[in-house]
Amino acid sequence: MDARTLHRATVDRWQQLLDGVPDDAWAAPTPCAEWDVRALVNHVVGEELWLPPLLAGRTIAEVGDRFDGDLLGADPKAAGRRAAGAAAEAGEGVADGQRVQLSYGEEAASEYLMQLAADHLVHGWDLAAASGQDRRLDPELVDAVAAWFRDREDMYRAGNAIGPRATSAGDPQAELLAAFGRTADWSPG
């Protein structure tokens, strides 16, 4: 699965889960201990908002702080829909060989899409777990992200981008979650 296809599929799944968040779940805890549901959604929406300008050739400095703070406003689902739509459209337009400027330097735009696809998939699971939705991930998406992440896990952990590896029951979804520092049986209580 190429980066554009994977990115689109994970954004679409994220949006389905966001649309399914119950009105009373925004303050619920998530597997990301520092975030409740609203903060988790705000994080992903922020990543989605960064994608179009960076793919258009802007630098981190040029974008500045416009995506800091609360990006959800009074209607988090609508804000999420707008951001996801813009991110999906921008991702589909990535050209072979395109480069992008990220916080750590120049990177292949396809690698950036893979990073965001992984984030959408894993944070989608976080959102499902926190809001009482179906936690099952598409096995094809799990396999694609796991194959990409296998050679990057140590680097992500060393950079404090993910927590310690968790123990796993051994199935592919549980293994992917463990690689990202989560246990498949997480519960809020």
Rank of each mutant, 00 (worst) to 15 (best):
M1N: 06
R182H: 10
L17Q: 05
R165I: 13
G163T: 05
L17E: 06
Q115V: 14
A169V: 12
T183M: 09
E62P: 01
N160T: 12
D151S: 15
V44W: 01
A9T: 12
Q133S: 00
A3T: 05
L121P: 00
G159D: 14
A166G: 01
D19W: 06
E175W: 02
S110Y: 00
V142Q: 00
L113A: 04
V94R: 05
R182I: 07
L18Y: 03
D70C: 08
W35D: 08
W186A: 04
D171L: 06
A84N: 01
L113F: 07
D171N: 12
L17W: 01
D68E: 14
A78Q: 14
D143R: 15
Q16C: 10
L71Q: 04
A178E: 01
G97S: 13
A174C: 06
G46N: 09
G20W: 04
G69F: 09
L54E: 09
E175D: 14
G170Y: 08
H43N: 12
V100Y: 03
Y112D: 11
V145N: 02
Q15W: 01
G73Y: 02
D65R: 10
Q16D: 15
V44T: 04
L49E: 10
A184M: 02
A95T: 14
S187H: 13
G85D: 04
Q173H: 09
G91R: 02
A56G: 10
G80M: 06
G57W: 04
E62C: 12
D154Y: 06
G132P: 00
D12W: 08
P188S: 15
M1F: 01
A147N: 11
A25G: 11
P22C: 02
V63H: 03
P188M: 10
V44M: 00
G85R: 04
A130E: 04
T30I: 05
L18I: 03
E62M: 11
P188T: 12
F149V: 15
Q15L: 15
L51Y: 03
R8C: 00
L102I: 14
A84Q: 01
S131M: 09
P53Y: 06
E140I: 02
